[in-house]
Write a protein that binds this DNA or RNA. Structure first.
Length: 463
RNA sequence: GGCGCGGUAGCAAAGCGGUUAUGCAGAGGACUGCAAAUCCUCGGAGGGCGGUUCGACUCCGCCCCGCGCCUCCA
């Protein structure tokens, strides 16, 4: 029985699909005006694991992750770069696809782009207007009237009064209430626009997710996810829009389960664009193997903060190395998990408990220990199968150990050179010339290569 | 100010009212020409003060510290 922590109820509850075995999952994806940073990587990895586990649990999943390809930042960046919006977003969608693929993220079933759903958004805004929840402000924008939507603030645990008390936004005088948010933005000079009943303009940010999720998953679906920072106001507004657009008397229940993943931090502070303390995925991947990065993310619980540092990545690499060391010498094949085995059962129970990946990984390490003792091919295949459910351990063990080096990369020697030196050393050993053998070992060690002697001969790996 | 989350051994990170988390690092041993890997053994924990309990890291209260949201942000 899968249990998920639901932000809406602030409790972990058994997951019951609306129409089993079908499950709908919508995750807020990227605004494509720059490269993905590690925070984006975390969302992608976290929900990739959620997605894999839901499917492994037998659900017929429809996984949707949207792409925001029109908004103020995109317009601004395109203007700065002197390129078209389409060129800019196209470039960064491509980059995102590359980063995601490197991290072993499976493609969602749908990746809708905001600009393909302008009509849906307009229809939604029209219905909100008809329901008396939206109004045209003096400047030409169409706003959502939060005070007319009962229950506004339920998801984020905020009341309109508290929000007003803490108000620190510049008040837009065209708004009836400072907390009202824009649904449709009147286009200014030189801004891209779409025609609409409210004049030329573009959609506000929040409306796109209401339009796309409803279009692809229905007006009531199972799970909606995203980063913690989207809880308010983005997801709060999404609920207001989606439920507010329904006809009077229609049951209002947009999403059953809301999931929010924790932030990536740097020096104990949230990694964010505005703080400038972010690392892009591609920067990090220049220095660390993608599977190490994925392992690093999966090693923490998805709702906990995750501190980024080289030391932590090195640590993750060391841990992953232990797993691959145990798998060395076994084929890459996996067998379907035997859920009756204690290890697999522990793994399953862990993921069923709000996707507790750290606990699931502990099971993997216990298996590795047992594998080192027994060298059982069946166990190796099981370890691979379970690792595969996390998107890990899909590579040949020896290949991993030979290619994945630490941050203090010293891979100066090619495999051919290394094999050559190993042959020289073997000859020296045979002649009992241990001084020379040790010199060669030292030489390779300095180049980041560790030699391991065994009765079957000498093997090597990167330090 | 309002709302919320967290403080676990050198580092990272889980579960759990009483029984080994796990990984890295550390100590001793086995193995090795020397190593590495592996195996065996071990040390080391739960911010502070109270309370509940036969018993609390685990439940409750207070305090201290850190973080987040309340503005675009994954």
């Amino acid at each position: 029985m899968l249990k998920i922590y639901n932000t809406l109820t602030r409790s972990k509850t058994t997951f019951i699909p609306i129409a089993p075995p079908k499950v709908g999952l919508y995750v807020c994806g990227m605004t494509v005006y720059d490269y993905c940073h590690l925070g984006h990587a975390r969302v992608m990895v976290v929900f990739d694991i959620v997605q894999r586990w839901l499917r492994a649990s037998g659900y017929q999943l429809t996984y949707v992750r949207n792409i925001t390809d029109i908004d103020d930042k995109i317009i601004k960046r395109a203007a700065e770069n002197g390129e078209s919006i389409a060129a800019l977003t196209g470039r960064f969608i491509h980059a995102m696809d590359e980063d995601a693929a490197a991290l072993g993220i499976e493609k969602p079933d749908a990746e809708p782009r905001a600009t393909d759903y302008i009509e849906d958004m307009q229809a939604l805004i029209g219905r909100l207007q008809a329901n008396g929840l939206a109004y045209e402000a003096s400047g030409g924008d169409v706003n959502f009237s939060v005070r007319k939507f009962p229950g506004y603030g339920r998801l984020s645990g905020k009341s309109l009064e508290d929000l007003r008390a803490g108000e620190r936004v510049e008040v837009d005088s065209a708004k009836q209430d400072p907390l009202d948010f824009v649904l449709w933005k009147r286009a200014k000079e030189d801004e891209p626009f779409w025609k609409s009943p409210w004049g030329a303009g573009r959609p506000g940010w929040h409306i796109e997710c209401s339009a796309m999720s409803t279009h692809l998953l229905g007006e009531h679906f199972d799970i909606h996810g995203g980063g913690q920072d989207l809880q308010f106001p983005h997801h709060e507004n999404e609920i207001a829009q989606s439920e507010g657009a329904l006809p009077a008397g229609h049951p209002r229940h947009f999403v059953n389960v809301w999931m929010h993943n924790g932030f990536v931090r740097v020096d104990n502070e949230k990694m964010s664009k505005s703080l400038g303390n972010f690392f892009t995925v591609r920067e990090v991947l220049k220095r660390y193997d993608p599977e190490v990065v994925r392992f690093f993310i999966a090693r923490a619980h998805y709702r906990s903060p995750l501190n980024y540092s080289d030391q932590h990545l090195d640590d993750a690499r060391g841990a992953l190395t232990r797993l691959y060391t145990a798998l060395k010498g076994f084929p890459v094949t996996a067998t379907p998990p035997d859920w009756n085995s204690p290890h697999a059962a522990r793994f399953r129970d862990s993921l069923d408990d709000d996707f507790n990946t750290p606990e699931a990984m502990a099971a993997l390490f216990d298996m590795a220990g047992e594998l080192n003792r027994t060298r059982s091919p069946e166990l190796a295949a099981q370890l691979r199968a379970l690792g595969g459910l996390l998107g890990l351990l899909g590579r040949d063990g020896d290949a991993f150990l030979k290619t994945v080096a630490g941050s203090t990369d010293a891979g100066a020697q090619t495999p051919e050179q290394i094999e050559d030196l190993i042959a020289q050393r073997s000859a020296a050993k045979k002649a009992k010339n241990f001084a020379e053998a040790d010199t060669i070992r030292k030489q390779l060690a300095d180049a980041g290569v560790i030699l391991e002697d065994s009765p079957q001969g000498t093997t090597w790996r990167r330090a």
